[in-house]
């Protein structure tokens, strides 16, 4: 289904969706992030990109898995905490983030199904916004199989056409969302489609960063695993968690028991985001750490994204959103690192 929605009607559409929880980019200070929106009429879709990707809606940084309580050693009461299935819509997702969620779905729903993620995902409709201008100078989605108007993972894709949005449904759920307020939409005229193609092609051209021979790099990575390449490239790394926490596909987590009361014992088992750059990530209980230095941790991040995942799922674990480049406190640039991999000779 392909429709035209006048920008004036956008907020009316949102108002009609009052049976859904609506998430959209919200600005606080200088930082944008996806938040639950109380007044959908205030949503502004003209935004750069958020610091934290929309994965936080489906895979929150803190998730309570179960609650436990024990009054004696013999008896421990467990209560599983399963998220409520509340129909939700995330508005204004960029194509890179949407494909990130599609990749997360492969991880959390392929093989073993993660209830927490999938319960939320099943009830969430993703409405994307094509990028007419790359939201960040570090965008490189076209190098990793994406595009600024990719429909991968989306239910609806909207494109800004000036005074109106070109709204295209990708899935049945998306179609239903449009139909629920069909009176607000118009059929597109013929020349509009040409215009749309033009906008899309132009936006692709505006992306400045590019990774050459990504397939070759991917297969070359294991060859340079043991080289001092990683020592050199990681010299300025400070081992913070910005790159992975801001990554739309990084999904490692840690599970901890948070004790609220020691007697009678009461607490929660929670899952929180974890990070391959942190010192305790691979720490064994013996005290041995197989990834003791920053070289091995940077290597892990690159290998996981461009080699391991590629071997397992035949795709890259990177969507080219450029967040890790823009936000790195010491200017480590994943595009440059990969270029150096490409030209590296032992």
């Amino acid at each position: 289904m392909q429709m035209i929605l006048s920008k004036m009607n956008f907020s009316s559409w949102l108002k009609k969706l009052n049976s859904y929880r609506i998430f959209a980019p919200v600005k606080s200070g200088e930082v944008w992030s996806y938040e639950l929106v109380e007044k959908p009429e205030n949503i502004i879709l003209d935004y750069p990109n958020t610091i934290i990707p929309p994965k936080k809606v489906l895979f929150p940084q803190r998730e309570v898995l179960l609650e436990f309580e024990s009054s004696s050693e013999q008896e421990i009461k467990l209560k599983e905490v399963i998220p409520e299935e509340t129909p939700s819509v995330i508005f204004g997702i960029r194509s890179c983030d949407a494909s990130g969620l599609a990749k997360l779905e492969k991880i959390f729903k392929g093989g073993f199904e993660d209830l927490y993620f999938s319960k939320r995902k099943n009830q969430t409709i993703l409405v994307g916004l094509a990028c007419n201008i790359p939201p960040s100078p570090d965008c490189f989605c076209t190098s990793v199989g994406g595009s600024p108007y990719s429909k991968d993972g989306l239910d609806i894709l909207m494109t800004d056409m000036g005074d109106e949005y070109y709204v295209e449904s990708v899935t049945e759920e998306g179609e239903k969302l449009i139909e629920s307020a069909i009176g607000l939409f118009n059929d597109p005229e013929e020349n509009v489609k040409k215009e749309l193609e033009k906008i899309h092609l132009e936006s692709e051209k505006k992306i400045k960063r590019y990774i050459k021979d990504i397939d070759k790099i991917s297969s070359k990575l294991p060859e340079i695993f043991e080289t001092e390449f990683w020592d050199k490239e990681s010299l300025s790394c400070i081992l913070c968690g910005i790159c992975t926490y801001s990554c739309p596909v990084c999904h490692c987590f840690d599970i901890n028991d948070e004790v609220i009361c020691t007697f009678p014992l009461k607490g929660k088992r929670v899952r929180t985001w974890d990070n391959c750059q942190f010192p305790d990530f691979t720490m064994h209980s013996s005290g041995h750490n197989p990834r003791p230095d920053k070289a091995s941790r940077l290597r892990q991040r690159i290998m996981h994204k461009f080699n391991y995942f590629n071997e397992n799922c035949m795709e890259l674990l990177c969507t080219g959103c450029g967040r890790c480049i823009s936000k790195c406190p010491v200017g480590i640039d994943i595009v440059e690192v990969l270029e150096k991999v490409r030209v590296y000779e032992k």
Binding site: Q61, S70, I76, D254, N256, T262, L265, P279, D280, M283
Partner: peptide, 30 residues
């Protein structure tokens, strides 16, 4: 660092009670 769990190695024979008694000044939850 006090914020890391390095010093709180959980072994197979660590009981729930012991885990509960372990001091964790800061939990990982944001």
């Amino acid at each position: 660092c006090i914020a890391d769990s390095i010093s709180l190695a959980v072994k197979p024979d660590t009981t729930a009670e012991e885990k509960a008694q372990k001091i964790r000044w800061v939990e990982k939850s944001p």
